[in-house]
Design a protein around this nucleic acid. Sequence first.
DNA 1: ATAACAGCGTTATACTTTTCACAATTATAG
DNA 2: CTATAATTGTGAAAAGTATAACGCTGTTAT
Lengths: 211, 211
Amino acid sequence: MVTPEKTVERLSLYRRLAEEMLREGKMSVFSHQLAEMAGVTSSQVRRDFMFIGTQGRANTGYNTKELKAGIDQFLVSHEPDGVALVGIGNLGRAVLAFFHGRRPNLIIKACFDKDPDKIGRIIHGCRVYSIEDMASVLLSEKINIAIIAVPRAFAQETAEKLIQAGVNGIVNFAPVPLNVPGNVYVDNVDFTMSLEKVAHFARKQKIVSEI
Amino acid sequence: MVTPEKTVERLSLYRRLAEEMLREGKMSVFSHQLAEMAGVTSSQVRRDFMFIGTQGRANTGYNTKELKAGIDQFLVSHEPDGVALVGIGNLGRAVLAFFHGRRPNLIIKACFDKDPDKIGRIIHGCRVYSIEDMASVLLSEKINIAIIAVPRAFAQETAEKLIQAGVNGIVNFAPVPLNVPGNVYVDNVDFTMSLEKVAHFARKQKIVSEI
DNA sequence: ATAACAGCGTTATACTTTTCACAATTATAG
DNA sequence: CTATAATTGTGAAAAGTATAACGCTGTTAT
């Protein structure tokens, strides 16, 4: 069964909502409550849960702990996945800081940069290696997921090196589409696109509301 | 006519591809060339262009300059849109650096932060104001688009203040859904979601390729 | 000229994703 | 124990998106 990309995105959100509820001591939750928090419909939530097989009970809802565990297992593998980060500029450091200590099953285990001044240093708990050493570090750390945070001009070659070294999942922050083989999954995080999209729809909304 | 969100996203990409071609001196481009670069089909490209009305010519393709101008006007308004950035932490600074001087029609004109040490400073060409002054600054700078880069706990209240001050389009970097009225457009840029999505699909791909 | 070709614009078709609707299930109150 | 109300799980309908197909237009070569 093919899980829609949008479903996977929402599952990530539900997981965090479940986490938050656990922290608050809420032991169970209804689909309409999750829906309200996530900004979707309750049908959508139940439909999404069909993909992971998590079961709820009528009049009781979903067990928060079970739900979190179920989504967790579905999204990430049983053993924690190692992640590599390439490019320790402004953005790379921000991403590193963001993920540091946040997600126990998805840990940035190695950073790479060209700048000799950065190599060997430890930033936000993560060692910076030379890009030359990529293949060996990825192999020894069993990393197959990477984040590209290099300037646009170097994104494609970075992707190729990563794939060469066994990576098959990439979060790409460079504002350029990557050319990759079909067995590699890429998610583009594109600030320009986001901002332009918002600019466009904000303007449209404004026009509508003025009528 | 309602333009699909996905179309708007692709238009942003086509615009940048057109820009790149202009820099390289290419005066025209075919739909299948754009398609290849963007990783979509040529039908898709032509379909997308129907929404903006840009016209091409058989056997000649689309005039690069015209195309760029057409998309530009469609996405952003004729007059440059001002953008506000709230939260000058690691991520805020990275976003600011990223957009600095990049996009002539979408300029970050004001930054806001709680930290008194930052207020009054100029970072990447942008003045930092106190959050208290949000309403007046947004009014005088005619800003109606904002980027939220504050910690999760402050995201909702920040959104409310921005909307109060007239904002109707938000790029939200905080990993939490925002509760906003229907006339405000929000795009969530969610690192955790991106990484989890990649982790999931990368694992799926791995399993498929092992069969 | 005109035949052959290439590529646009658009309509029709196929596919994907979301919403609706309701039977089945479970807790609760009387 | 039974009636009632609430909520799940899912098949069916609807909405939204992407692909295919093809007539038309403009270019190129002969």
